[in-house]
Design a protein around this nucleic acid. Structure first.
Lengths: 333, 333
DNA sequence: AATTTTTGCTACAACGTTGTCGATGTATGT
DNA sequence: ACATACATCGACAACGTTGTAGCAAAAATT
């Protein structure tokens, strides 16, 4: 059932039918009603591919993220989807699995008109950003959230990572920690850096000498990370406070502490970035910096849709910073 | 940069260029190389929308699920995406938020050639399945996973829910529970029913009289669920074992137990379906039935791609049942 | 009454690709 | 030498939609 067939049923030209269905002012109310009734009767629906092709816009956006089994990216997708559903957009999901090569090949797939815009959080390993500049040059609107590419001129939605880094570290200091470690994933990640800078600033503010051996930059291989953490906690140099940049590393620390019979929070206190809803029920309950993930998704998606819809307007290079909250629990008691 | 322009650069007809790029046997190796080199040089990429339009296939599938902030659906998406990436397919995500009306409108969006197939897990509230039959009638391949629509003739990938229900209940019985409760979401969900039937069967096998008041069918409103659970745990009728069909309800039970100072596992033992990686670190660590979520995604996607690619072959009505594992932890000690 | 304007519709050309068919030239077989 | 097969390419018509241009008839203006 296509336009031509529907038009034949109605004894109208198919361009008239097309215009009637899209409420064009060129068509009288009477025929509009007649057309719409018939369309409903025959269950006609426009072929979205043909429409996309003709209009050169797909009403589809791509969300490119490192992973989906994640208490942060989950709610972000929720936020994105909520706006997309309001505005009648479709959402494609692509996972980079923290792999730059995969990220590059995904971006390449999006160069040919498949999507009207891209929402992304770059992978840990992304050092080169040529692929991102290239797709921007092709005119595909791009909005970053959380893990941004600093040097690319695109709207960015983040949280107050630097300030949160200060807050988290000061929280540990106030709870009596003297030797505070910082755990993060790859150091060339924007968020890791900002949080670390906050950490270093807080140490400075409290006249604590920073110690390189207490800064752990982890890898993708989680087995390796476990042994890195284990090594640190077994050393004489053992920290009495840990600020983890991602929840995964906090959980890994819980695991090691369990094995080494190090008790939290007596021997060591832990605070982490986390959006896990099980944090209150962990043993011990976990003190977290929680990001407004849902709102972040909504905000990033809103910005993207705005730039997509008024094509004339120059892509703004606005930076939006949302605030995270520190939730005290027993791991830092 | 499109085919016509590329062809002009090469002094070839654009149909020759098209065929050269798709490795047609009609084109000599020499020109193929020449064309491909030029295409690379000018960074030409086929317009996927035009291609989809012409070929009447989009290389895109839709994944329709209730929610994404979920330790089960997350890995499922991972599994689906892994196969999709292998086969060069794109993945659209749609969330029903357990709402039948939303599910219906989403399915309606997919009726017009936007996707080559659909992978779905139906919402809690889906009682009527006319929308699913309709889209199947339109020739869009459909594969169900986990939460299936029993009466629809489509491939289904599930886990051994009935048997897992028996295992979970027997586990509680072996640990000395006499009054075992079953918590589930909406009862018109296939998985809830199968798990409950397993639960009832296990009770029967051990000559325990089933008690209607111990079967809790919850709603979408999580506040309401909390008070339902609280009411049950405050009653004189209090169970000494709980089998939860979804993790959310187990966590809710932890919360209530914390409030009422009921100790787990001394006063009450808990086992639940869950794919949470924090289960070992909860207080107490949580005994779970864990589903092979990633494999489920892979399996469902494989089946869909097979039926999509050999269009001639009739859609098989195969049923695949994967096995879940019971992981004993302290909540049932 | 002659004119311009408006209304309501149709015809038609794109959007960029792919597959079918036909044309030409070259190799193979009798 | 002639017929047949094959290899290599070009011309062309779709796929279904939407926007522009055109064309009557009706309405409004002069």
């Amino acid at each position: 059932m296509n336009l031509k067939e529907l038009a034949k049923e109605l004894n109208l030209s198919f361009s008239t039918v097309s215009k009637a269905l899209s409420d064009s002012h060129e068509i009288s109310a009477a025929t509009k009603n007649r057309v719409k009734a018939k369309a409903k009767e025959l269950n006609y629906q426009v072929n979205s591919i043909a429409s996309s092709f003709r209009k050169q816009q797909t009403r589809t956006i791509a969300v490119v993220i490192p992973e989906v089994v994640n208490d942060f990216f989950g709610p972000v997708i929720n936020g994105i989807e909520s706006i997309a559903q309001e505005k009648g957009y479709h959402v494609l999901i692509y996972l980079t699995h923290e792999d730059m090569e995969k990220e590059i090949s995904i971006i390449k797939l999006l160069q040919n008109g498949r999507v009207d815009g891209i929402l992304m959080s770059i992978s840990e390993q992304t050092s080169n950003t040529a692929h991102l500049e290239e797709i921007q040059a092709k005119g595909v609107p791009l909005v970053f959230f959380d893990r941004i590419a600093e040097h690319i001129d695109a709207p960015k939605v983040t949280t107050d990572d630097y300030f949160s880094g200060i807050k988290a570290t000061e929280h540990l200091i106030q709870r009596g920690c003297k030797r505070i470690a910082y755990f993060c994933m790859s150091k060339n990640l924007s968020i890791s850096n900002k949080r670390m800078n906050g950490y270093l600033e807080a140490l400075k503010m409290h006249a604590i000498e920073p110690d390189e051996s207490l800064i752990l930059s982890c890898e993708r291989d989680s087995e390796k990370n476990l042994s890195l953490i284990r090594a640190l906690l077994e050393s004489k140099n053992r920290p009495d406070g840990i600020f983890a940049s991602v929840e995964k590393l906090a959980i890994a620390t819980y695991e090691i502490c369990q094995q080494l019979e190090i008790s939290i929070p007596e021997d060591i206190k832990i605070i982490t970035f986390s959006n896990s809803y099980t944090a209150p029920f962990l043993n011990p309950s976990l003190t977290t910096i929680t990001q407004p993930a849902f709102e972040m998704g909504r905000k990033a998606a809103s910005i993207l849709f705005n730039t997509v819809e008024k094509k004339a307007v120059q892509m703004p290079t606005e930076k939006t910073e949302l605030v995270s909250v520190l939730i005290e629990r027993n791991s830092t008691l």
